[in-house]
């Protein structure tokens, strides 16, 4: 925490944007101001040490205009003698840069713990699907390239993605969170994965099931049973799991698939096992 000197570093229009503006301490730091702004609730605070380590920012100078000024603004070191127009441009770049750093930071150990706290507080909202019973969501992207797709919300109960409710959140760039983040979180904290349920909505007319829908649901049941059998058979065949099972001695529960080691196999490798 070395840069708390420039307390008046923010332009006046920032003060106007700042919504809950009772506590003037927040405006000391650009990051605190940014996180306090309405619509930025999904972001967590990136550690200052992480930003100051240039290695973590490799390649971002080509992504962001006025990179060095933007970085100065984020770390509250920006020269105060800039004219307003320039300041606006730098401000915009700083938000973009912060977002891109954020995407990298949240898949580090420390970033994951910070996002985990937000997940537990349901800062990202709850799943709109009725049968998920308000399960908390996590932000996810469909593309890591900036300016391509907006942020989506991943529900680990139904394993599907949803659009944010509020238009303010729906306009956030997905690249500020990245495609990998929620899945990385569950790799590191597998105990957070909820038990999957086979509940589903059954459409009925005057109490009678619909033939076409029932047919599809039978097909889905078949797929589910097939994949379950495949996974059970596959887990027994995996050497890594066997080794883990014997070492820890409690990994015999077949419902708990192998964690960690055999994680990111490509789909091709999966086909080979079959």
């Amino acid at each position: 925490m070395q840069t708390n000197l420039h307390s008046s570093g923010n332009p006046s229009q920032d003060m106007d944007d700042y919504t809950s503006g009772s506590d003037s301490d927040y405006t000391k730091y650009w990051i605190d101001w940014f996180l306090g702004t309405k619509g930025n609730e999904y972001f967590c605070e990136v550690d200052e040490e992480y930003i100051l380590d240039r290695f973590n920012l490799t390649g971002l100078n080509t992504e962001v205009q006025y990179y060095s000024q933007a970085l100065d603004l984020i770390t509250d070191n920006l020269d105060e003698n800039l004219d307003d127009e320039m300041r606006d441009i730098v401000e915009k770049s700083a938000r973009h840069l912060y977002g891109l750093i954020h995407a990298r930071f949240i898949i580090t150990t420390h970033g994951l713990t910070k996002m985990l706290e937000k997940f537990k507080k349901c800062d990202f909202g709850r799943c709109p699907r009725v049968l998920c019973h308000n399960h908390p969501l996590l932000p996810v992207a469909l593309s890591d390239v900036p300016y391509s797709k907006s942020v989506k919300l991943f529900c680990c109960r139904c394993e599907d993605i949803y659009n944010p409710k509020s238009s303010r959140h729906a306009s956030i760039d997905g690249a500020y969170f990245g495609c990998s983040f929620p899945h990385m979180l569950f790799q590191v904290y597998p105990q957070l994965v909820p038990p999957k349920s086979t509940d589903r909505y059954v459409p009925r007319i005057f109490g009678f099931k619909l033939h076409d829908v029932a047919k599809q649901q039978r097909y889905q049941d078949m797929i589910r049973e097939e994949s379950h059998a495949r996974i059970m058979a596959g887990i027994e065949g995996l050497p890594t799991t066997a080794a883990q099972g014997s070492s820890s001695g409690q990994q015999n529960n077949k419902n708990r698939a192998a964690d960690g080691v055999a994680v990111a196999t490509e789909s091709g490798a999966m086909a080979d096992v079959n």
């Binding site: 680990c156 495609c179 990998s180 899945h183 990385m184 569950f186 790799q187 597998p190 994965v193 994949s227 495949r230 996974i231 596959g234 887990i235 995996l238 799991t241 708990r256 698939a257 192998a258 964690d259 055999a262 994680v263 990111a264 196999t265 490509e266 789909s267 490798a269 999966m270 096992v273």
Partner: peptide
């Protein structure tokens, strides 16, 4: 997927 690699079915998550 993580870093573009699909998560294996055999993974616990």
């Amino acid at each position: 997927a993580i870093y573009g690699f699909k998560i294996s079915e055999y993974s616990r998550c």
